[in-house]
Amino acid sequence: MALKSILFSLVLTAVAALPAFPQEGHGFTPAEIQRGGIAYSSFCVNCHGPDGDQISGVNLGSNQFRRAQSDAELIRIIQKGIPGTPMPPGAYTDEQAAVLVAYLRSMATSPRSTRKGPPGDPSRGKALVEAKGQCLNCHRIGHQGTVTGPDLTSIGITRRLAEIEIALLDPSIDIRPENRPVRAVAKDGTKIAGTLLNQDTYTIQILDSNATLRSLYKTNLREYEFLKVSPMPNFRDRLSEQEISDVVSYLVSLKGLR
């Protein structure tokens, strides 16, 4: 069985294992959980962290909530905030709040890790990222590296450990919309590659492989496509199990500029 299939099965297993809501007798669908995860990354992760446990005494990933039992109570907190605490109100629709609840409920049963590797060492991981892994040829960490790949400066805040593992071992399995690669060929034959930033009927905005912001007019292109294969290499065959653990442990420790 290919790694991709294994990982996919793991994800599916995690989803299938989601508990029905004891309070209300129903569960959420994988699509709702996925959508909730994207919303969580956008709205919640900076304070609560990728595993929901970044605030002392609060663990959103435990499916145990001090101020809420039912989905409706969680939705109310998400929308109204908690007066007298740093938890602010948010202008979320009921549906947005509901998919956030779906994701929060799912966190308790989704695996924190997709593999059983040896414990990692962040300092060794840092050295691998900066040397053997050549990660900084594409990525930025703090003031080092470049910008053509996703910024890893806060990757330990925005991604769960399992997500980082998947990104290293099979980077094409889940290309997020913000990292969508684009390939284009101009009418004069010039090849263009980059990351999609925006698009409309007439134009495409990219950050190209030379780290230049470019707006491409479709009338000037011979062809273009949005790639479903990530330009990031698969590190499964490039790094040992120990090295992968080291890199993951380093990336998980990246919490932004201090």
């Binding site: 629709t93 009921d94 549906e95 913000e178 969508r180 930033l197 925006n198 698009q199 949005f226």
Partner: peptide, 26 residues
């Protein structure tokens, strides 16, 4: 006073208004 949807629909195209950018696949 509560929404009475009896479920939900999930979709990749934002339902009511666009975001600042569009990175969706065709």
């Amino acid at each position: 006073g509560n929404q009475y949807g009896g479920g939900s629909a999930t979709h990749e195209v934002p339902a009511l208004r666009p975001g600042p950018t569009n990175k969706r696949l065709p």
